[in-house]
Design a protein around this nucleic acid. Structure first.
Lengths: 91, 91
DNA sequence: TGAGTTTATCACCTATAGTGTGTATCGGCG
DNA sequence: CGCCGATACACACTATAGGTGATAAACTCA
């Protein structure tokens, strides 16, 4: 299991659900937009403290950021669940 | 919430439940006994990849190592549940 | 008491987490 | 087309995570 990718996917998904841009998220969390970018793309290996701070800024439990997603067991051809377009947040 | 302490407590608790010494755990996980010692005492800030490797060596999900424990909400005076002595594992 | 086992602490080193600065790419819109 | 908002990429830099080795407690038991 690639933890970097897992956390990256969770962070991005939740950030979009909350309706934040990387920039706005950077503002709230205190991390740089560049860091968040590479983090979401699974290139980074954050510490647990970082994980907690990210979760707090997103308003979710830190457990949510390490929660396994369906993709792991995936290879499933049928894509369940909506939210395909994510609508590229418009305030 | 102090993530270092939280993870440290979880690791120690599970390691003891599994019945491993720090030394044996070090052997299985590939980390040094010294590192595991400081980790369990909340002095270390492990990365998510480290977290996953620790969980794997313990035979549990990585989520178990970041799971919040009762101690947080604690200040509860009454100690429920047995297992007080931990019996200092005898194989 | 003293040997054996387990855990804690100290000194030290290398690899990398995370920053700052700057730039590149991409989509949409006037 | 050029501009703008949003994301990706690159690099030098500092603080610290990860790791080793030696050793000091701390506890167990013959």
């Amino acid at each position: 299991m690639d933890m970097r990718r897992l956390v990256g996917r969770n962070v991005r998904r939740i950030r979009l659900e909350v309706g934040l841009t990387q920039e706005a998220f950077a503002e709230k969390s205190g991390f740089s937009q560049q860091y968040l970018s590479s983090l979401e793309r699974g290139r980074r290996n954050p510490t647990i403290v970082t994980l907690f701070e990210l979760a707090t800024a997103l308003g979710v439990s830190h457990v949510a950021l390490v929660a396994p997603d369906d993709e792991t067991a995936a290879a499933a051809p049928l894509r369940r669940g909506g939210r395909s377009g994510t609508t590229r947040n418009r305030p």
